[in-house]
Amino acid sequence: MDFNFMSASIPLYIKAAKMTLDLAVWGILSSLIIGFICALIGYYKIKILDKIVRIYIELSRNTPLLIQLFFLYYGLAKLGIKLEAYTCAILGLAFLGGSYMSEAFRAGLEAVSKIQIESGLSIGLTRWQLTRYIILPQAFAVAVPALGANAIFLLKETSVVSAIALADLMFVAKDLIGMYYKTTEALVLLVLAYLILLLPISIFLTYIERRVRHAGVGN
């Protein structure tokens, strides 16, 4: 292995890692918002909207991100909807992640027992107060591990955006292989970069998951 080459390439990887993280953060945040709204719509069975949410979730869950990105980036462009690759990537991640987050939130909401809801009602809480003080806090606690797993999943999925020419980690590695044939070096750095990004998050989540499980929320 060419260590000089590797150390010279590190700045490139740092720049690319910033792009990967940037996309992941925005993608995860928008997924959380979309997922939260969709889950509430489904949980409270809001007319018409819940049908739309259902269709969205099925479309999102049963198609690959890569195809979603190609459709957004190359397909829509030809209809006059020209989106930047960066916007497309976040849209794609949000479209994909929204359904995953929604299912995680939804499972949390469903885990709030009927008796909890009835007790809330019997002390005279309104629907809104019930949601705010009883349902959401409990649902959220149950959903945290799944939300975290989805966040990691989305961070990993960002590796696909290099296909629409965004300069993320994957893209840099491909570039180095293409230009200098330093395959092993480029890939070792790539793996290291992902490990540095993902390992701490993964360990932190395992810790959170344990804490949530011990909190004994929802019996």
Binding site: I115, Q116, E118, S119, G120, L121, S122, G124, Q138
Partner: peptide
């Protein structure tokens, strides 16, 4: 319901 107190069979405290 604010005027009617109710206690259930299962422990219904908010955990």
């Amino acid at each position: 319901r604010q005027k009617i107190g109710m206690v259930f069979q299962s422990y219904d405290l908010f955990p």
